[in-house]
Amino acid sequence: MAEQIFFYFFAALSIVSAFLAVTRKNPVVSVVWLISCMFSLAVIYVILSAFFLAAVQVIVYAGAILMLFVFVIMMLNLKTGMVGQLRNLGLKFVGLIAALLILRQFYSAIKGAGAMTGLPPRAAAGFGEAAAVGKLLYSQYIYPLELMAVLLLVAIVGALVLAGKEQS
């Protein structure tokens, strides 16, 4: 029961934070709401017994990625009103309609799948623990893992090249 209360609370929090994150004028405020959303999701991961991923979610998203956003926003020193006038209203309206229709489709898909099915009350042994995930990562998924490492390296070099001082 406590589980359910926690879940609904943080689900609501994540939706509200997400909504506010994409609607705030000031990007810094947006980032703060996004952090709130990511954090709520981390809690939901904990409720789902995915402890390791919850930790990664907090460290990588809230800690690294969103901090990077904040740095860039500060670096660019954007002020309100610098973004320029609103254009293509018709297009955006069509896009919104399409997005809502997609939500409607998701709803029918979820509902059409059948009666409500509860998750198993207990997670399987070791589910979501760092040791189990780690073992899988370094055995069966060793090649994707190494490739991911290369990708990250390339991203770092790329970011340095793109954002570094201009040569001329």
């Binding site: 293509n88 297009l91 955006k92 069509v94 896009g95 399409a98 997005a99 229709l101 997609i102 489709q105 898909a109």
Partner: peptide, 15 residues
């Protein structure tokens, strides 16, 4: 964003 909307309509039709 026009491309994104086109994309979205495509996804909509696909789903």
């Amino acid at each position: 964003q026009a491309y994104a909307v086109t994309f979205l309509i495509g996804v909509l039709l696909l789903i």
